[in-house]
């Protein structure tokens, strides 16, 4: 994620001098930092701090989990602090939190494990003040891996919960 985010920031032609690690940026809750750093803000693009693209790439849309675990890591909590701050600012968005598992495990158990992971994220965001009715959860178990090798390098990235932004609340 970090690498991807950096590449995208470079492509966007932003003055990166003020920008450090994107995940730290999210963690600091400095959601508006990049747009203010200079250059035109293209609405909806990654340099628009109110955009889903910004949320996905700069705040970080996902957290990772240890094998067969659903408790949040300290790194994960930093990302979620950023997500919570952003969601509290950008109140038009709702989100579906997708829980995923790696391929080591039986199908049904992995659906249940993904449900636990998605719920860990939801509960954390709610504890930070995000309204529960903006956050739904779904588990894909091991059905939607993003990495396809069969070793820990890939498994670690597949054991994830992804906060997928959706359109605004009605009304």
């Amino acid at each position: 994620m970090t690498t991807t985010a950096k590449i995208l920031l470079l492509v966007a032609g932003l003055a990166l001098a003020a920008c450090t690690d994107p995940s730290r940026l999210g963690g600091d809750g400095a959601g508006g930092g990049i747009g203010g750093a200079g250059g035109p803000i293209v609405p909806g693009s990654a340099n628009d701090p109110t955009s889903a693209a910004y949320f996905n790439q700069t705040i970080g849309d996902r957290v990772l989990f240890a094998v067969d675990q659903s408790n949040l890591t300290p790194e994960g909590q930093v990302v979620l602090d950023g997500q919570a701050t952003w969601l509290l600012t950008n109140t038009d968005f709702t989100a579906i939190i997708e829980g995923h598992a790696d391929e080591q495990g039986t199908r049904e158990y992995n659906v249940a494990l993904g449900a636990r992971r998605a719920n860990s994220v939801r509960e954390y965001l709610v504890s930070k003040g995000v309204a529960g009715n903006r956050l739904r959860t779904v588990s894909y178990g091991k059905e939607r891996p993003i990495e396809i090798c069969s070793n820990e390098a890939c498994y670690a990235k597949n054991r994830r919960a992804v906060t997928v932004l959706a359109g605004g609340l009605t009304g």
């Binding site: 659906v111 249940a112 449900a115 719920n119 959860t137 588990s139």
Partner: peptide
């Protein structure tokens, strides 16, 4: 609404089923 259901299986009577339901992260 707000739950996930999966892993269904018929009872021998063909009318009742058992399944898993996830709610609030608990299955």
């Amino acid at each position: 609404d707000g739950t996930m259901s999966f892993a269904p299986r018929f009872a021998p009577d063909g009318q009742n089923i058992v399944f898993s339901l996830s709610q609030g992260g608990n299955t």
